[in-house]
Design a protein around this nucleic acid. Sequence first.
DNA 1: CGCGTGGTTGACACGGATCAATCGTGGTGG
DNA 2: CCACCACGATTGATCCGTGTCAACCACGCG
Lengths: 275, 275
Amino acid sequence: MQPSLPMHSRTLTDRPRRTLRDDEALASPPLLRSGGESAPLGARTWQGLFGAQGPNTTELAALSSVARLRTVAAGGSVFDHGHPATALVLAASGDVALGWRGSDGVFHIERPVRGPAWLDQSAAWLEQPHAMDARATGDVLIAELPCAAVRALLERHPGLARHLLASLAREVHGLTMNTHELMHKDAPARFAAWLLLRLPASSAGSAGSTASGGSAAPLLRLGERKRDIASQLAITPETLSRLMRSLSRQGLISVAGYSVQVLDVAGLQRLAESG
Amino acid sequence: MQPSLPMHSRTLTDRPRRTLRDDEALASPPLLRSGGESAPLGARTWQGLFGAQGPNTTELAALSSVARLRTVAAGGSVFDHGHPATALVLAASGDVALGWRGSDGVFHIERPVRGPAWLDQSAAWLEQPHAMDARATGDVLIAELPCAAVRALLERHPGLARHLLASLAREVHGLTMNTHELMHKDAPARFAAWLLLRLPASSAGSAGSTASGGSAAPLLRLGERKRDIASQLAITPETLSRLMRSLSRQGLISVAGYSVQVLDVAGLQRLAESG
DNA sequence: CGCGTGGTTGACACGGATCAATCGTGGTGG
DNA sequence: CCACCACGATTGATCCGTGTCAACCACGCG
């Protein structure tokens, strides 16, 4: 049994900042700069979108030539649910939350996205409105590839199609897995899976070593408000809180504020598969 | 209030046949015929896959030329979870269930599919194994488009890419909606939505006319075992049974065995949106 | 210093799952 | 032909997981 660290003495100085408030959006300078990259859309960005086997240099240059860039300050809206989509939208860098604005005005995050990543690569092909809302949770560099332009590009660069298809297929795969989790796994299993996904890839297969000094128990810092994490897991903040407490008592993890130490990777994996 | 028909005097002669049992698979003749269509893959099939704005005749002919056809008898396996995918798989005609075989051997249907429709158009692009199992629930004509061949086709017919992209995008859209329903709607709402989806398109917007003799209340026959319907809705058969009884008592529907009469379309729509 | 925000905790309600029993149907073998 | 049995649906009783509501605490900010 692992003693839970004293919650009341923790420092919350490292707490994730509130993310979707207008005052912060206004406070940050609305500069139009190209993020941390020298080129507007660099190789690293494309690799994040297409994986290691992405398009070649010529194709990437073509894509870049039709991209329209804009920045969105933290808290701003990237696109809105129901608004017609005419372009493939991606985040070159920065954090964006995909979700739905409820009737009460509260924003329900369904999927957090860290650039470089696609935000909506499907609606435009269907000439349909965006299916979700996208809100910047940090300053973000957005790129839009107008659908008509990309179609024209496909005529001249047939090889591009394969990569766009693969990238859409990746999204289908992810959504299918997510649906399956929602249908068949309970909250503890989903949370365990969520934790494992955020683990550095190094500490994947090792068995739980609760007290062995050899391999260090991986430490991970939660980058979002806990209520946003709960939202992604489709549970309430209260349930998430109880869940973390429960896993602590079982010695699977050790929680101190926004730092979570995974003490028993194998145990978490077992938990994540119960369903 | 609508009197519920006497359940015990109903005839179950029209009950859907058990679907996934080996004896039936063996009982039906394993003929290799080309289904009900004269051409192996006819225009109607392609339209079901790509919608009204599908590829042109030349492109369709090219696709047909690389398609490999096979039939699967009722109860047979079309492809298995984990098996490597080298082709885009579609059902030209017939009924297939997409789902997962549980560790107990029970097959959990997650999505029923009526040909013509795609069965897996994503795994092959990623060179990954199929994410789900596909089992024929009736005699089915399967077509496989080898991924390598389709890639070659894209070089010569760039216009094809647009339609393959749109078709994948449609799947993304459907999965996104489905995920949202699972996260935010309760069982009655999901069942109501399920019923509305199966309604003939004619009786969409009409308000509920419980007793008006004018517009006939749409009647629909359940084509699957109720436990399979429950499986799609991610609820248990018991819950589905109680749900149908409950909606009957409220006068929204009238149930007699495997026939469901929708008495109050508007009421169902209201129910489907609660969440 | 008061207030707003976010997190934690407890009491409670409720939806849906689980377990068990019964019924109707259809298939099978004596 | 009939008894038997397997299977699916239904119903009732009960349990469990989460959501809801409310109170409280901790922190940071104006």
